[in-house]
Design a binder for these strands. Structure first.
Lengths: 192, 192
DNA sequence: GTTGAAGCGGAGGTGTGCCTCCGTTACAGT
DNA sequence: ACTGTAACGGAGGCACACCTCCGCTTCAAC
């Protein structure tokens, strides 16, 4: 095993039980939980997780007394892996190293599909809403593009999703949300 | 009432019942649902919503046969209001009109706190994870800043939250996610 | 191989949410 | 005022998730 310079690494390693059967179950539970959380969000059924892992519900509770314990363990695993990646990219050019790490960050974050909604909007009314929304806001964006204020190589759908994504996260306070949104919008603004 | 040029507007209006008591209950249910969804996410208890609205559970089900109906109605209301705002800002300067509409979009989208997680991370282990994460990625960002590649007027926390936000939304496909992320990162890149 | 302790699993009690059904209530048209 | 009907509300049956408890099993130390 390589050096573990991150505080999380020790914690992750130390939590795994020693006995053979216990360690196997622990791993199975973590894998099942990661899958279940990705699929159903943070409210996934604990009994379902135990079932997926092929262990009894009692075993789940012995290893992870609360939902939070389980959730945290899964999360800690992800973070630990992500931290390792940072070491791997460290020798590249500054900007390139940063962005490739960020893109990995994205991949790992996908596990937090917990955050996402089940809104895959097949329904009639959602489509209508979308149409209305685009009909209302689209022209504003196109106008800005024609005035040379907004970059031409993206469309309104891109823009809405970008803003929605940034918005749907928790920030320390409104000041931070605004600051981040401003940064992103700088990216949308055409070079002049 | 002003003109309603958006397809959603008619739908929203036509769904409200005619009888006085029925209309009152309908309004109360929508208000309670908006509140409950904002507070507990899309899985908020329907019985709790009925309770908040001060009506029987039967009344909720008569107006909104499924959770989806209720959710859609709340959402449609938000969208409708947002569409109206687009008309109001239409006479301003192109870029200013766009961005002020977008900021309103943010406000209305906040209702979709449903998307957000209950992860307000008070716990010990979350803090440790965070420390590790920042310890791992922070230097990459600072290095990019020192090389003049990343703007100096934001910090790593801003950056992580921006990327996490964009990432946690659904996109049509990975191509779009990547495109949008690139746009936002253009905003992070220092002017040169 | 023996053995005792650590680990296992699932039955079952409790709570909560979903949704239906129907006796009662309140509106609105005459 | 009268009355038919639309709307109301909540009891109750069903399903499912949480979590505990304890008799049984498996490991590993000697």
């Amino acid at each position: 095993m390589t050096a573990q310079p991150f505080p999380i690494s020790g914690i992750v390693a130390s939590r795994r039980p020693h006995r053979k059967d216990a360690a196997r179950n622990y791993d199975a539970l973590l894998a099942a939980a990661r899958e279940a959380f990705a699929e159903h969000g943070a409210e996934a059924s604990l009994e379902d997780i135990a079932r997926r892992a092929g262990v009894g519900i009692g075993t789940l509770y012995r290893n992870f007394p609360t939902r939070r314990h389980l959730f945290e363990s899964v999360y800690a695993d992800e973070v630990d892996a992500l931290c390792q990646v940072a070491l791997e990219v460290a020798e590249r050019e500054p900007w390139e190293a940063l962005t490739s790490w960020l893109r990995r960050f994205v991949d790992y974050t996908v596990t937090k599909r917990a955050i996402r909604e089940a809104l895959d909007n097949e329904s009639e009314i959602f489509l209508t809403c979308r149409d209305s929304m685009y009909q209302a806001g689209g022209p504003l964006f196109e106008r800005a593009q024609k005035a040379g204020e907004a970059r031409a190589d993206m469309d309104f759908d891109d823009l809405l999703r970008m803003v929605a994504g940034i918005t749907s996260t928790n920030f320390l306070d409104d000041t931070q949300r605004d600051r981040v949104l401003t940064v992103a919008l700088d990216g949308v603004r055409a070079a002049r």
